[in-house]
Computed example of a mutant assay.
Amino acid sequence: MHKLMALYKIPADETAFFAHYNSVHLPLVEKIPGLLKTEVTRIDRTLMGEEGNFLLAELYFADTDSFKTAMKSDENVAVGADAVAFAPGILTVMTGHTLGD
């Protein structure tokens, strides 16, 4: 399984962040073709490593080919544009695959 992970730092205004994230950003994410599931985790605290992590979103795709197709889609372009606009300077995006795949 191939994944895209978005790690957000603590935003200046958590209420405004979640209002946008839940009403605008996640609905855009759900339109990405080939997306199997999305898991969003609110980070309670950091036990080791860099402080200030706030939210982790994991987007799952069946395989590398479906992931590549999704990343090239107009729907994903819209997600990226929205992320840059509402979370500047607080977002790290990573890709990978689950072990054993």
Rank of each mutant, 00 (worst) to 15 (best):
K3R: 05
L4F: 07
L4P: 04
L4E: 04
M5L: 12
A6T: 08
A6E: 03
Y8L: 07
K9Y: 05
K9L: 08
K9V: 00
I10F: 08
P11C: 03
P11N: 02
A12E: 13
A12R: 10
D13G: 10
D13A: 11
D13I: 09
E14D: 10
T15F: 12
T15M: 08
A16H: 00
F17R: 00
F18G: 02
A19W: 00
A19C: 00
A19T: 08
H20E: 04
S23R: 05
V24F: 01
L26K: 06
P27Y: 04
P27A: 10
L28A: 01
L28I: 01
V29S: 03
E30Y: 15
E30F: 15
K31I: 09
I32N: 12
L35N: 08
L36H: 02
L36Y: 02
T38A: 11
E39V: 14
E39F: 07
V40Q: 06
R42E: 09
I43E: 07
R45D: 14
T46Q: 11
L47Y: 12
M48W: 07
G49W: 13
G49K: 14
E50T: 15
E50I: 11
F54N: 05
L56H: 07
A57Q: 10
E58I: 15
E58Y: 07
Y60Q: 15
D65E: 15
K68Q: 15
T69H: 11
A70T: 11
M71T: 09
S73P: 04
E75R: 01
E75N: 10
E75H: 04
E75C: 08
N76C: 12
V77E: 07
A78I: 03
A78L: 06
V79H: 04
V79F: 08
D82I: 05
A83M: 02
A83Q: 02
A83T: 01
V84C: 06
F86H: 06
A87G: 09
P88C: 09
G89T: 13
G89A: 05
T92L: 14
T92C: 03
V93R: 06
M94F: 12
M94W: 10
M94I: 13
M94K: 14
G96T: 02
H97Y: 05
H97G: 07
T98N: 04
T98R: 05
L99C: 01
L99R: 08
G100P: 06
G100E: 02
G100L: 03
D101T: 13
